[in-house]
């Protein structure tokens, strides 16, 4: 009996300092204006986000975020759970429209075009800004149909041979062609987790997007599958801008050129990945990447 109590107590004691730090940090930053430090803006950006706020009902989830996304770069978004990085990612192709009670304000532009403009249709926008989700979510159809679906609904192809070309090219780009070429008619859901995620990437690039949003694409995968996806991301950034949300700082360091750190709905710091991980300028960033909380 006694020993049990003791462990419990010592457990509390062990966690106490960390919580203390966290509460100190929060109380300090609450009073401080949260200006983004680092270099959020780039020259000739693919996407620009100015004064973006997101509300879930009354609750503000994203607070005044300003950031640019460059061409042919991988930008990683890191931060503790619930900091709003996924919410921000979903603003970029207006996936937040599908969430009941979610409201986005501010100015988001893709190649200078305001994506919230009245004349902008969300369907072509999502064709230009593709998305890969946390959990691999292939359609319960064949591998071929999974990749072919996007080109088909957007009318990108005239005939079957063109469609087959696109499917092959997309699967090759996604590094899945060798594994999948003999089983194109088998269900995509029969693939392994990592293969499914690459199938989802192939599906996204089949409609030739300009930006690919990845929401923790490796969190459901084992290290080998993760390594493959990371390799793929490095190759894909030659053609696309990639925004990747990740929980793994190692992953952010491995795949990205720039990193953005979010904290409780604020964009705290943006900068070159090397610089962020070696020489963070903001106290919160430093606390997070050194593992003091998060």
């Amino acid at each position: 009996m006694e020993s049990l109590f003791q462990t419990a107590e010592s457990g509390i004691l062990a966690t106490a300092p960390k919580e203390k730090i966290l509460s100190e940090v929060t109380s300090k930053t609450l009073h401080k204006a949260r200006e983004t430090v680092g270099d959020p803006f780039v020259e000739n950006p693919r996407m620009t986000c100015r004064e973006v706020n997101v509300y879930y009902g009354e609750k503000k989830a994203i607070n005044n975020v300003n950031i640019d996304i460059a061409r042919h770069e991988v930008i990683a978004m890191i931060g503790p759970s619930g900091c709003g990085k996924s919410t921000f990612l979903r603003c970029l192709n207006r996936m937040n429209d599908t969430i009941e009670g979610c409201r986005v304000t501010g100015d988001i532009r893709l190649d200078g075009m305001d994506i919230h403009d009245r004349n902008v249709d969300v369907v072509p926008l999502r064709a230009r800004v593709g998305m890969v989700f946390q959990k691999p979510n292939p359609f319960p159809k064949s591998i071929f149909d999974n990749v072919a679906y996007g080109p088909k609904i957007h009318g990108l192809v005239q005939n079957k041979s063109e469609l087959e070309e696109i499917v092959e090219a997309s699967l090759k780009k996604a590094g899945l062609w060798e594994e999948a070429k003999d089983r194109l008619n088998q269900p995509g859901t029969g693939l392994s987790g990592g293969q499914q995620q690459r199938l989802c990437i192939a599906r996204a690039i089949a409609v030739s997007p300009e930006v690919i949003l990845m929401d923790e694409p490796c969190s459901a995968l084992d290290p080998i599958a993760t390594a493959k996806i990371e390799e793929l991301i490095a190759e894909l950034c030659e053609h696309y801008s990639i925004v990747i949300v990740t929980h793994s700082m190692q992953q952010a360091a491995r795949v990205s050129q720039r990193t953005a750190y979010f904290h409780l709905g604020d964009l705290i710091e943006v900068g070159k990945t090397d610089r962020i991980f070696t020489n963070p300028r903001h106290q919160l960033t430093e606390d997070y990447i050194t593992g003091r909380f998060g």
């Binding site: 599908t98 064709a127 979510n137 292939p138 359609f139 679906y149 609904i153 989802c200």
Partner: peptide, 15 residues
């Protein structure tokens, strides 16, 4: 029907 399927479809620009 899992919401992930809806997101997948919307995410590649299905109406």
């Amino acid at each position: 029907v899992p919401p992930s399927i809806r997101e997948a479809a919307l995410g590649i620009g299905a109406s």
